Amino acid sequence: MTQWILFAAETAEGGLFDIDATLPLMAIQFLILAAILNALFYKPLGKAIDERAGYVQGQLKSAKEQKEKSLALAQQYEQELKEVRKQSQEIIANAQAEAQKIVSEQTQQAQQEVIAERQKASEQIEAERNQAMSALEQQVQALSKQILEKVLGREFAK
């Protein structure tokens, strides 16, 4: 049977693989078609893809730079915020100390005024007591004199 197949292959024309001038012609046509497709479609498409890749890379680089700048600014602002908070706490502490000092001074002044008023009142009371005592002494002397006059008579009272 294999002999029959070989015999049929030898006698048949236009077999599956005829090697004649069509094979190089087909290869040349394929190469020309590949060159035309490359020139018309693949190069512009490749150029567009390359441009797009360059654009994307540029945007990524720009985004990274902006991210670094924003992180640096955020860090700077955090540092400034810490300094401002520290300064504000110092200002608040100074204001509280100043207010405490003013309160202490006013309290001390009020205490001194109270002491002065108390001293003045004490002096006034003492003066009034002395006045009352001298008035009482005069009245006692007058009453003693009257008592002596009534008891002993007017003659011994003088």
Results as ranks from 00 to 15, higher is better:
Q109R: 07
R118L: 00
I49Y: 11
F30Y: 13
I49M: 11
K43S: 06
K101D: 04
M26T: 09
A21D: 09
F41V: 06
V140Q: 07
E65S: 13
E51T: 14
E149F: 10
M133A: 14
R118I: 00
Q29Y: 10
Q79L: 02
Q89W: 00
A21N: 11
A34T: 12
E149G: 01
G58D: 05
F17W: 14
D20M: 09
I92E: 08
Q57I: 15
L136H: 04
A95H: 02
G54C: 13
Q138L: 06
S144N: 03
E126A: 15
E98S: 03
N130I: 15
M133E: 15
T107N: 08
E113L: 08
L16A: 15
A110E: 08
I49L: 09
E51K: 08
Q138D: 08
G153C: 03
A21I: 06
K86C: 01
I5P: 07
E10R: 12
E68D: 11
L37Y: 12
F17K: 13
Y55V: 15
A8C: 09
K150M: 10
K145A: 09
Q138T: 13
E137H: 03
K47W: 13
F156D: 10
Q3Y: 06
A157S: 02
F41M: 10
Y55N: 08
F156K: 15
T107Y: 02
G46N: 10
A110R: 05
K150R: 06
